[in-house]
Design a protein around this nucleic acid. Sequence first.
RNA 1: GCAGGGGUUCCCGAGUGGCCAAAGGGGGCGGGCUGUAAACCCGCUGGCUCAGCCUUCAGAGGUUCGAAUCCUCUCCCCUGCACCA
Length: 382
Amino acid sequence: MSDISLLARNHVELLPAGGLEAKLKLGRPLRVKLGIDVTSPDIHVGRGIPLQRMRAFQDAGHIGVLIVGDYTTRIGDPSGRSAERPILSDAEIDASAKLYVDQAMQILDPARTEIRFNGEWLSKLSFADVVRLTRTLTVAQLLERDDFSKRIAAGHPVSVSELLYPLMQAYDSVAIEADVELGGTDQLYNLLAGRTVMEAYGLEPQVVLTTPLLVSFDGSKMSSSIGNNIPLAAAREEQFGRTMRIPDTMLEDWYRLVVEGPVPAGEAMDAKLALARFIVARSHGAEAAVEAEAHFTRVVREGGAPEDVPQGVLPDGDPIHLPALLAAAFGLSTSDARRMIGQGGVKVDGTAVSSLDVPRAELDGALVQAGKRRFVQYPPSS
RNA sequence: GCAGGGGUUCCCGAGUGGCCAAAGGGGGCGGGCUGUAAACCCGCUGGCUCAGCCUUCAGAGGUUCGAAUCCUCUCCCCUGCACCA
């Protein structure tokens, strides 16, 4: 019925050995779980990789169960110290969850996806239930987690509530009776904790399948907080440009993990362009990919202005103080703008300017550029 | 609770009375080189119509001509000890 090598393509761990084969022999659609954190409503290409696995299971007739971690997010980090886990309002969480699901559907098959909010069951646990849950793991087991042990070794704080996160995630598997749980390799600990906890609750433990973390253009794993991400919700030009930033040496990994195919023969440049088109097309459609490439060619490769440059309005006065103008147009500080001018990064109609005050006539009807990518057009006064 | 050690600009991390808007690295930005990149080279990196001025070194007071640096209190973190019906 299902080809295991296809389902488990690119996996790093597939545990326990033979577990997936046994599950498939049950002859019913498997419940394949993937948990998502809704702290920021951002799925990026890297986080899309486990989703691609879920899609493969769906295509083979199984059910994808997407767990929205609304409750986990709602609790937040009680110490209030972590910027990564801000406490969000219910409305923010709901909005964020919706965006998240929309993005996930770029990759998933909606007809075979079940969306569940973990508040559904976590909010109903009594304190006694929570204590029962905590009995399923020991402190030593919790501290085994690399992340915790490293932070402790480095003298960084680990709050007790953080120790509960793996337990909450594990309980999700109990609640939905997961057959398989997917995740990045960074989730291995949590996924395995899910097995232990499921067993303690008298369930058949889930099979654990981890996928590699996608290394981004800066050489570290793709992450929203680092800012090296390519969000599935990002604009077409942005997705295209960010993809083109990856070094040629990463092409093989990206093709294997994202496209799930070989790198096309020929120039690295062409392969990268094709990759960028693939990513944009998946999120925005084939036509968007063509437009994004045209934009990239014009702005980045040829150094020209984009097709639709935002219109600006010149302030009163003559001459015009350029730092203030740039600050207003591009959201810079005037100090920043001054630096850019001083370094020859500001052009008016293609010519670098060096003076801080520019006669109004020179700006009237001019195209102003700051750096490579910031443009503003001032319409001629009549 | 007690005893030590800490909290520095986006991040890491120097600085322990003036030469400090604060070393160095990372990241980022601008320029150059180029096939997009990467690599490499140069420069910049708190704010302000900027040869000057203003606001920063957990927070609030204080000492001093002068404080990131000294003192007091507060908050937070770490380590050890103690507590643990």
